[in-house]
């Protein structure tokens, strides 16, 4: 008979239409089976196991074997990972994502932020821009008092720095918040504007060079289950995961942004780059955000946090030049 097969259950909490599902995650699942010659199989459960915020514990305790976690959902738990959520990093997800993986691999991994699980891959998603219902932003003063949905704790800090009133509501309420005018805007990449069908309400996108922050995502597998897989199979799986998967995710994000931008422009949404003056204002206003992360990361044991951030930015510049 066939060799004993390891089935890895995958907790499917991202919505069925999530941009990475079809082009990246499902092919990856199939690839796992192929490279291990059927000895390891990833089985997608019909729905999520546990809540979105519980996914780390879900994998850690083996409720499901594999899941994607968003460190941003559990503030305070993964402070050093917030380096990937910082604003003004990089426009191109295809550069940002693998660069972030390399920084994780080189500097952050040793602090074992995801102890008890094995990191299959990690990436930063698409940088966000100012999306709102009234006008292209040309001066920070326009933002003062605007109500915007804040996608994360980091975004709350950024909004506070810019004089925006952050509204903390789940993204699932985005359409209701927008259509009824509870909020005037949000920080979004292009693609989610279409996903949440708010393109007829938020008709202005001010593109901030380097973005106003993004989410970090990590694909984790339960450690015990992982260690039960033979060493060569583990190596084979990592061969198709790690930076390779991170780059694939980044490329899909980038492509999604390109097509979404086109669709938005065709749909009458005004998209403009932030002026040099505005960028100067934003850069100045956001200086404390970097500093706050460096301080937090140092407290968490990342002694050279300032240098790590510098190295990350250098990595991004290099990556951007290569393209």
């Amino acid at each position: 008979g066939a060799a004993a097969e390891t089935v890895l259950t995958y907790s499917t909490w991202l919505p069925p239409g999530y941009v990475l599902n079809e082009p990246v995650l499902k092919p990856w699942s199939a690839e796992v089976e192929k490279v291990t010659e059927g000895r390891v199989r990833v089985e997608w459960l019909p729905k999520a196991v546990g809540s979105a915020a519980a996914q780390f514990d879900v994998v850690h305790d083996g409720l499901a074997d594999v899941s994607i976690i968003l460190p941003g959902y559990t503030p305070g738990r993964f402070p050093i990972m917030e380096i990937g959520e910082l604003p003004l990093l990089e426009n191109d997800p295809a550069v940002l994502s693998p660069s972030f993986y390399r920084v994780y691999d080189q500097y952050l991994k040793q602090l074992k932020p995801f102890e008890g699980t094995h990191v299959l891959s990690i990436w930063a998603s698409t940088p966000t821009h100012i999306v709102n219902d009234s006008a292209i932003i040309t001066d920070v003063a326009q933002l003062k008092g605007m109500k915007m949905r804040a996608p994360s704790a980091t975004a709350v800090a950024i909004m506070n720095q810019l004089g925006i009133v952050p509204i903390q509501k789940p993204v699932s309420e985005m359409y209701e918040l927008a259509s009824t005018g509870v909020v005037d805007g949000t920080f979004f990449p292009f693609n989610p504007i279409l996903d949440w069908k708010v393109q007829d309400i938020f008709k202005y996108v001010t593109v901030v060079d380097g973005g106003l922050g993004q989410s970090v995502l990590a694909l984790l597998v339960n450690e015990r289950k992982w260690n039960a897989i033979s060493e060569e199979d583990r190596a084979a799986i990592m061969e198709i995961s790690g930076e390779k998967l991170s780059l694939a995710a980044g490329k899909v994000y980038a492509k999604g942004e390109e097509t979404s931008r086109k669709a938005l422009e065709e749909g009458g949404v005004t998209i403009k780059d932030a002026s040099a003056e505005l960028m100067t204002q934003i850069e100045k206003a956001l200086e404390p955000i970097d500093q706050a992360w460096i301080k937090k990361a140092e407290e968490e044991g990342l002694a050279n946090a300032g240098e790590v951030l510098k190295a990350f930015r250098a990595e991004l510049d290099k990556g951007a030049g290569a393209n």
Binding site: V49, G50, S51, D61, G62, L63
Partner: peptide, 10 residues
Amino acid sequence: TPAMSMLALI
């Protein structure tokens, strides 16, 4: 063990 943990998480 996962089942016990699930009780508390849910």
